[in-house]
Computed example of a mutant assay.
Amino acid sequence: MAPTRDRRTGFSRRRQYGVFLGYVLAVAGAVVGAALLALSTFNPPAFSALRMALAGLTTPVSTGLATATRGIGAVPDIVSHYFFVEQENRVLRGERDRNRALLLRARTIAYDNRRLRALLTLRDRTEGVVVAARLVSSTPQSGRRFALLNAGRWSGVLPGMPVRGPDGLIGRVLETGPNAARVLLLSDPESIVPVRRTRDGLPAIAAGRGDGLVDIRSVESTNVHFQPGDLFVSSGVGGIYPPGIPVARILERGSDTVRAHTFAVPDTFDFAIVERAFLPLPPPVSPIKPAGAPK
């Protein structure tokens, strides 16, 4: 059905009110526009003041709309920036992990270099060095305390030779093979080392406990008092260990027998020096055969 060309309001009051309101607004707009035009022509200062007053009223609304518009427009940038930052954080965490591994490796190398330099210095100023070798394994958690040295009879290592590191005395060679040797550590229950206190020369014995520590026992008399931090070095008595090698440090106050921590810690064993015994045993003397005895 074709639309009607009749534009009369008819009997609809809503339509009539709408048309009437439109006319009123149009006339009011025209009147206001004419008044503003006349005001701007004949009284520019007043028109400027009115314009600024209207601007003051509409500025907060404009500001709010502009802020909302910028916030909505920034949403895509915020989302893209978030994903970019997340990816960048992932890359940085990967670099941090790689750098941490490199740092740990560098620290290990620096630690080994310090100990090797100390060992080389010790070897250069120590007489009677047989060989410098690596301690490839140890038993710090069992009742018996041994270490394995990767040098044996082919390198001149013999049973009874003292073994020391850059920190102090480690023990003595117990058994030897062609290219390996078994070392009895100071903390082994079968280990006994004559020692003396550095501050007054008090003689004592460092006996292994089997738990990673040693007992310092007085050999002079009773009621000998020990203080925490007292240092003990080898005394040279017995002819095996050279005098002056650091052995142990007292952990607690006591008398007669106290616990002490060895300077050479089994967990840090890496390289060691094998020395000749301080007073090596003389070679066995063959019995003299009487004259005329059969050969």
Rank of each mutant, 00 (worst) to 15 (best):
A68K: 05
R123C: 00
L122A: 10
S80E: 12
V19D: 00
K289I: 10
V75F: 05
F278G: 03
L231G: 02
A180N: 09
V237E: 15
I216A: 08
T268K: 13
V130K: 00
I78T: 12
L92V: 10
P178S: 15
L116V: 01
L65V: 14
V130H: 00
R123M: 04
S137I: 02
A264H: 11
F47G: 09
T262A: 06
F278K: 04
D256W: 04
K295E: 15
A248V: 11
T63F: 06
A101H: 09
Y241P: 03
R96K: 09
A133E: 02
L54A: 14
P189S: 05
V214L: 07
I240D: 10
S235C: 09
V247C: 08
S235M: 05
R172Q: 13
E275W: 01
I273T: 13
P246I: 03
L148R: 06
A147H: 00
T268S: 12
V129K: 01
L92Y: 05
V129A: 07
E127L: 03
P228G: 07
G29F: 14
Q87G: 12
A260H: 07
A291V: 13
A204L: 02
V285Y: 01
G212S: 10
G171H: 03
V61L: 12
I273P: 00
G168I: 00
A28N: 08
P140S: 03
S191F: 01
A207K: 14
G254F: 07
A110N: 05
T139M: 06
Q87Y: 02
L103F: 11
R51V: 08
D112M: 03
P44K: 11
I250E: 06
A181E: 03
R209V: 11
L174H: 11
A272D: 06
V193N: 02
P189T: 02
T262Q: 06
A66H: 05
V224T: 13
D97R: 14
A206K: 02
G177W: 15
Y23N: 04
V163C: 02
L149H: 00
S142D: 13
A181C: 05
S48Q: 14
R196F: 00
D267I: 07
V31Y: 09
D270H: 13
P140V: 03
R249V: 15
R197S: 06
E220C: 06
Y17S: 11
P287K: 06
R13T: 12
Y23G: 12
K295R: 09
R217P: 04
A151Y: 00
V233E: 15
T59Q: 10
Q16W: 11
S286M: 12
T257L: 08
P290L: 08
